[in-house]
Structures are given as structure tokens and as C-alpha cells.
């Protein structure tokens, strides 16, 4: 084992790899990740879930998602329906695959939008400081004190042609604020470093300094926020759908599946209808969160093992 390791390193240097990253870089995060057995397991499980939902949805037939009263409420492991059917006769396995995919896509889209928005505003706010910072921070404070669930619920009922895309925008409207705050704090710390001043003295514009100098130095924070953000946003979507204000009823998601548990009869005697979605949501959130904390640990030297 030891010999093997040394050998590996030798091969690497012999190959003459001229590229080496600073110690706070991506390589260190990867090293930290590989050291943690459970993190590797988490990533494997997540990859399997992604394959299961995204590839699986290609094989889901249209009929299995159609209402078919005659096949209603078949229990799990019955012929043709591995996880049984719901009251309308829809195949639970198909719903789980398509719903899981929808939830994950929404989680990722919301995260992408809110991270990009948060990053730009956090960079501007932290880099310029002063009045600019004050204005942005007051706006963020204002948005953060709003009860976001309430407002999203009200807006979903007001908006006429309401679909997955509008839901993504609605959730993003509120979730960029915490990212902006998070990034701002790191930019504030970076701004005081002399390389920013050196860059200014070299004639670089503020925009160039923000995106070419400061941004690479907070890259590990971005990875952390992306990973943890995805888990959180899947949770928000699921919560809204569970309450009936998320995706429209025609579009399945983990939330609508868990929503079947609203019915006391379902919760007592038909666990196959809602339990698979609950288990899937738990696994996804827990695994993503675990990977996120490993990243966080790797980025912070004090927490490193």
C-alpha cells in the first residue's frame, strides 16, 4: 500500500506535470474528499440516483403516467407495477423517476440562478464597499425579512400561466440573498490583500480585478455554496409541492409524491405510495449535505483533518 502510493507519486513527477495548484485549490478539496470513505460513498450514491432519474425517465412510458382508474391502488411488487400505483392508477416507480428528475432539475436551476446573481452582487458589494455596499445590503436585509414561503404561495395562485419555469424564478427571487451575503464577506477579506492594489497599479479595471483576480480566490467558497445550495433548494421545492403550491398537479415531483401522505389512510395502510419518495429525498439531501461539509472542511484550514 505504502509502496504503491510512493510509486504513484513518482510516476506523476516523472510525467513532468508542470501544472500545480496553490494549496487552497481544487486539488486539496479532492484530496480531502478522497480521504473520506463516506464522502466517496455519498458521491457514488448521488451518481446512481442521477443516472436512475435522468436515464430512467427516458424509459418511462407515457401510459404509466396516465390516469387509469382500473389499476388504482395496486400494492407494491404487483405485476407490471414494481412499486404499486396511486389512486389514479399511475405507476409509482415512473412517478418517482420523473418526479425525482424534476425536483433535481429545479434544485440545480434555482441554485445556478441564485449563485450567479449572488456572486455578481456579492462581488460588487464587497469590492466597492461604502455606499454601494450599504445600498445592496439594505435591499438584501429587506428581502430576507420577508416571509418567503407565504409570498411564493400567494404569487403561485396569482400568476396565470404557472409552470416549472416560473417556480424556478420565484424561488430564485428569494434565495440569491444569502449567497450574495456569503460571497460578500469573502470578497471583503480579499479586497484588503495587496494583490488587488498591485492589480490596480498595473492598470486593470475594477471589473477585471473583480472577475479575474478576486473571483478565483473565492472559488472554493463557490463550490461549497453550490453543493449546499442544491440540497436546500430541492428541499424548498419539495416543501412547496407538498403543500400544493409548488409544481402544477400535472407535473410530478418528489413533493407531490410525499403529498400523498396528507391522507391519513395513505399514511397508515398504503406506505408504498409515499415512502419511496421520502426515502429518496432523505438520501439526496443527506448525501449532498455531507459532500458539502467535506468541501467546507477542505476549504477551511482550521477544520481540516
Amino acid at each position: 500500500m505504502l509502496f504503491n502510493k510512493a510509486n504513484k507519486q513518482n510516476i506523476k513527477t516523472e510525467a513532468g506535470e508542470p501544472i500545480s495548484l496553490p494549496p487552497s485549490g481544487f486539488k486539496l478539496v479532492l484530496k480531502e474528499l478522497l480521504k473520506d470513505k463516506f464522502a466517496i460513498f455519498s458521491i457514488l450514491v448521488l451518481v446512481l440516483i442521477l443516472l436512475f432519474t435522468f436515464l430512467g425517465s427516458a424509459f418511462v412510458s407515457k401510459e404509466s403516467l396516465d390516469t387509469n382508474i382500473l389499476d388504482g391502488l395496486m400494492p407494491a411488487f404487483s405485476s407490471g407495477h414494481f412499486l404499486g400505483t396511486d389512486e389514479g392508477g399511475k405507476d409509482i416507480l415512473s412517478l418517482l423517476i420523473v418526479g425525482g428528475r424534476n425536483s433535481i432539475v429545479i434544485g440545480i436551476s434555482v441554485t445556478a440562478i441564485s449563485i450567479i446573481l449572488g456572486l455578481v452582487i456579492g462581488l460588487i458589494s464587497g469590492y466597492f464597499g461604502g455606499v454601494v455596499d450599504d445600498i445592496f445590503m439594505r435591499i438584501i436585509d429587506f428581502i430576507m425579512v420577508l416571509p418567503r414561503f407565504m409570498i411564493i404561495i400567494i404569487l403561485t395562485t396569482i400568476i396565470s400561466n404557472y409552470n416549472a419555469f416560473t417556480l424556478i424564478l420565484l424561488i430564485s427571487l428569494f434565495s440569491w440573498t444569502s449567497s450574495a451575503r456569503y460571497f460578500r464577506s469573502f470578497v471583503l477579506a480579499q479586497r484588503e490583500r495587496e494583490y488587488v492594489m498591485a492589480s490596480k497599479a498595473s492598470g486593470s479595471s475594477n471589473v477585471a480585478i473583480m472577475f479575474r483576480e478576486v473571483l478565483p480566490n473565492i472559488s472554493s467558497m463557490i463550490i461549497i455554496d453550490v453543493v449546499l445550495g442544491i440540497a436546500g433548494n430541492i428541499g424548498i421545492e419539495t416543501g412547496l409541492s407538498f403543500l400544493g403550491y409548488g409544481l402544477p398537479a400535472s407535473t410530478p415531483s418528489l413533493g407531490t409524491l410525499i403529498g400523498y401522505a396528507n391522507d391519513p389512510v395513505n399514511i397508515m395502510s398504503r406506505p408504498w405510495v409515499w415512502l419511496p419518495a421520502v426515502v429518496m429525498l432523505l438520501i439526496i439531501s443527506y448525501m449532498i449535505n455531507y459532500v458539502g461539509t467535506v468541501f467546507q472542511r477542505a476549504a477551511d484550514a482550521r477544520q481540516r483533518r
Binding site: P22, A198, S199, A201, S202, E213, P216, N217
Partner: peptide, 28 residues
């Protein structure tokens, strides 16, 4: 700033840790 440049005291923090030497010197 093409004519007036600066050398900083702290060489570690005045060089961007995420940039290669080539890009650092080529910036101005």
C-alpha cells in the same frame, strides 16, 4: 501607471496566489 509602478512590502500577498507568474508579470 505605465510610467509609475510600485513594489510592495509583502511579496506573498501582493502576488495573486491563483495566478501563474507569467500572467502576473504580463498583467501590466
Amino acid at each position: 501607471n505605465r510610467d509609475v509602478q510600485m513594489i510592495f512590502q509583502d511579496s506573498m500577498s501582493s502576488l495573486n496566489p491563483k495566478k501563474r507568474i507569467f500572467d502576473i508579470i504580463a498583467e501590466p
